[in-house]
Amino acid sequence: MERNTTKLIVLSLFFFAVGFVATVLLPFMDQGLMRPTPTAEYRKELILDQPDSPEARGRALYMQYGCQYCHSQWVRPVLADERLGPVLRAGDSYYDAPHLHGSARIGPDLLWVGDRIPDKGWHIQHLIDPQGVVEGSIMPSYNWLTEEELEALAAYMVSLKYIENPDDVVDPQYRY
């Protein structure tokens, strides 16, 4: 094998394939990961089915300005997230394209921000002047957005809310 290119390539591909099948393909067999929740259905109606709605426009702006790099949309069954609302379920982002779960909390989690702050006016004011609304905030001002864009982003923020789901586990399994 120390001289044979073909063997080297075939084996490298094989080990890659094993890990790929196990960690990427196999999860598609898991029915629990393939069921949209009522929250997902709600967002589909608002955003996917109506690409011209303010919510859809707001989501595009959220992505365009990279809000997800500072704001996660990901509540975990752990102590640190206890006050952030219901735990994120696999089906919640079923229709999202792309997902906006994020990986950092430089600012607060926004998964259920619509439940916490349902007032669009607050969001618009906060986008224009973050420090005026939240003292000491390190969020940059988005005062260069047009009024229509601010409205759209606020509409998207408010749409991020939890829809009751009869299948939900009341007490999630893992707590750290």
Binding site: V24, A90, Y94
Partner: peptide, 13 residues
């Protein structure tokens, strides 16, 4: 279409 949670998984793959 790829369900969001699988996107997340492939994203970190």
């Amino acid at each position: 279409h790829v369900p969001g949670v699988h996107q997340l998984n492939m994203n970190w793959f």
